[in-house]
Design a protein around this nucleic acid. Structure first.
Lengths: 154, 154
DNA sequence: TCCTTCGGATTGACGTATCAACCTGAACGT
DNA sequence: ACGTTCAGGTTGATACGTCAATCCGAAGGA
């Protein structure tokens, strides 16, 4: 599917709007999370995954699957969070290669305090900006892009 | 516009699809830019702005306006790029407070080499994933979110 | 004139992201 | 048994982003 070298006006407009929106939304949500809950977006994401898992316990590998982050990013992130007492690292008995990650009480308290605030911010800046049809279409477009990327060679 | 504490299924689905798409798209485009052109996304953005300006010359302030980045981010980024010879810093004559940024020959060559590759990647992963109607609707949704955010208190 | 204010810009410290190199032990073939 | 391969995980180096503090000179007031 080759094409001309540049994008059409329309395509460019959509692309630039997307990038600008992404920048502003991330900066807004990230700043609020940091200010009001003392968590970075990365902290929040990990805590969400852990708190939704059965006993607040997951393998680093599973966290990688869920977030689609690189393994080294996961590892660094968990180190920092362990340092602050949000999570705890434990060896899987029998196979020391695998490491289990457990949500601490501190971590659970942090995510439970942060989640309602964050959800309110998402609603305010994202959900409430669109009609229900728009939201539906937007979500489907995101899924289409996601599917497209997954179908492409690395 | 207050609401329930959580998002509906639909809202959550759209939000998660958006976040997942954002992650994969950025990682794909960023890696390609780095690998094939030796530029970070931030480098690329600055070079685009400069190369589209009249003589490859802008004030740091204007770059801030155009990118919506914090001034310290601009400053750090320009320092790194100057170090690598992509841009050059110059004092505004008469008023040493303001600093002009000029695109070097190296910088212009870099952006001219990178742009077609990057555009092709954007087309491949983003534009070609959507129908023309979808793209239109997606762009309008992004603009609506952008407008919404700008209308909110900081 | 002096002083204060103000906004563009820089700096340093710290947290975060990515890449490449490496470690470790299970699984497999011979 | 031995060696190779392989996947999960860690580490260190380097680049990037954010915050708070600071610098600097123009503009305005008393």
């Amino acid at each position: 599917m080759s094409g001309p070298e540049w994008l059409t006006e329309e395509q460019q407009r959509a692309w630039r709007a997307f990038k600008a929106m992404e920048t502003m939304l991330n900066s807004r949500l990230g700043a609020s999370l940091q200010r009001e809950a003392g968590l970075s977006p990365a902290d929040y994401r990990i805590l969400v995954e852990l708190s939704e898992s059965s006993h607040g316990r997951m393998r680093a590998y599973e966290l990688g699957e869920a977030t689609q982050w690189e393994k080294s990013r996961i590892s660094h992130q968990l180190s920092r969070m362990a340092q602050r007492g949000l999570v705890e690292r434990q060896q899987c008995s029998k196979d020391t290669r695998y490491s289990d990650v457990v949500l601490t009480e501190t971590g659970r308290a942090a995510i439970e305090a942060a989640a309602p605030l964050h959800v309110a911010n998402v609603r305010e800046a994202f959900v409430d900006a669109l009609t229900s049809q728009q939201l539906q279409a937007f979500g489907e477009a995101c899924e289409a892009i996601l599917a497209r990327i997954k179908s492409l060679p690395t």
